[in-house]
Measured scan of single mutants.
Amino acid sequence: KEMRNAYWEIALLPNLNNQQKRAFIRSLYDDPSQSANLLAEAKKLNDAQA
């Protein structure tokens, strides 16, 4: 469930391009235990690109 939530949050971040989203989501599938960390990194990048 945590992975699914992280997937959708990443997919809906407005300032990431599709390539960036795909990279984060690929990492999510590679290591679901890192969901919270990956989401935090994606949000950080999203904010930096705002």
Results as ranks from 00 to 15, higher is better:
Ala48Pro: 02
Lys21Ile: 07
Asn5Tyr: 15
Leu28Gln: 01
Asn46Arg: 01
Leu28Asp: 00
Lys21His: 02
Glu41Arg: 06
Asn5Ala: 10
Asp47Leu: 14
Ile25Phe: 15
Leu45Ile: 12
Asn17His: 10
Ile25Trp: 07
Ala40Pro: 02
Ile25Ser: 03
Ile10His: 00
Arg4Trp: 04
Pro32His: 03
Phe24Pro: 00
Asn18Met: 05
Phe24Asp: 00
Pro14Thr: 06
Trp8Asp: 08
Glu9Arg: 15
Gln34Ser: 06
Ala50Asn: 13
Ala23Cys: 06
Asn46Lys: 01
Ile25Glu: 02
Asp47Cys: 05
Lys44Tyr: 08
Gln34His: 11
Asn46Cys: 02
Ala42Val: 02
Pro14Lys: 08
Asp31Leu: 05
Gln34Asp: 07
Gln19Lys: 09
Ile10Pro: 00
Lys1Ser: 15
Ser33Met: 14
Trp8Lys: 15
Ser35His: 12
Leu16Tyr: 00
Ile10Met: 02
Leu39Phe: 04
Ile10Trp: 01
Gln19His: 10
Asp30Ile: 14
Trp8Val: 11
Asp30Ala: 14
Trp8Gln: 08
Tyr7Leu: 13
Ala42Phe: 02
Leu38Glu: 01
Lys43Val: 09
Lys43Tyr: 12
Ala42Trp: 01
Gln20Ala: 03
Met3Pro: 03
Phe24Asn: 00
Phe24Thr: 01
Tyr7Arg: 12
Leu39Asn: 01
Pro14Gly: 07
Pro14Met: 07
Ala40Gly: 09
Ile25Leu: 08
Lys43Ala: 03
Asp31Ala: 03
Glu2Leu: 07
Asn5Ile: 09
Leu13Trp: 03
Gln20Tyr: 02
Gln49Met: 10
Gln34Val: 07
Ala40Trp: 10
Ala23Pro: 01
Leu45Pro: 00
Arg26Gln: 11
Gln49His: 07
Met3Val: 12
Arg26Asp: 08
Leu13Cys: 03
Gln34Ala: 08
Asn15Pro: 00
Gln20Cys: 03
Asp47Val: 14
Lys1Glu: 15
Glu2Gln: 05
Gln20Thr: 06
Leu12Asn: 15
Asp47Arg: 11
Gln20Asn: 02
Leu39His: 02
Met3Asp: 09
Leu38Pro: 01
Ala50Ser: 14
Glu2Asn: 08
Asn17Ser: 13
Lys44Thr: 09
Glu2Lys: 05
Lys43Gln: 10
Pro32Trp: 08
Arg26Trp: 11
Pro14Ile: 08
Pro14Gln: 09
Asn15Phe: 12
Leu45Tyr: 04
Leu39Ala: 08
Pro32Val: 05
Ser33His: 09
Asn17Thr: 08
Gln49Arg: 06
Asn37Glu: 12
Lys1Gln: 12
Arg22Met: 09
Arg4Cys: 15
Asn17Lys: 07
Asn17Phe: 08
Ser27Met: 14
Pro14Tyr: 04
Asn37Val: 12
Arg26Met: 12
Leu38Thr: 08
Asp47Gln: 14
Leu28Tyr: 03
Gln20Trp: 02
Ser27Lys: 11
Leu45Gly: 01
Ala50Cys: 04
Gln19Trp: 10
Ala6Ser: 07
Ala6Lys: 08
Ser35Arg: 06
Phe24Met: 04
Asn37Ala: 04
Gln20Pro: 00
Leu13Ala: 04
Lys21Arg: 10
Asn37Met: 15
Ala36Gln: 14
Ala6Met: 08
Asp47Thr: 11
Leu38Met: 06
Ala23Arg: 14
Met3Phe: 14
Asn46Trp: 01
Leu39Trp: 04
Gln49Thr: 07
Asn15Gly: 03
Leu13Ser: 05
Ala23Thr: 13
Lys43Pro: 00
Pro14Phe: 04
Gln49Trp: 07
Glu41Val: 09
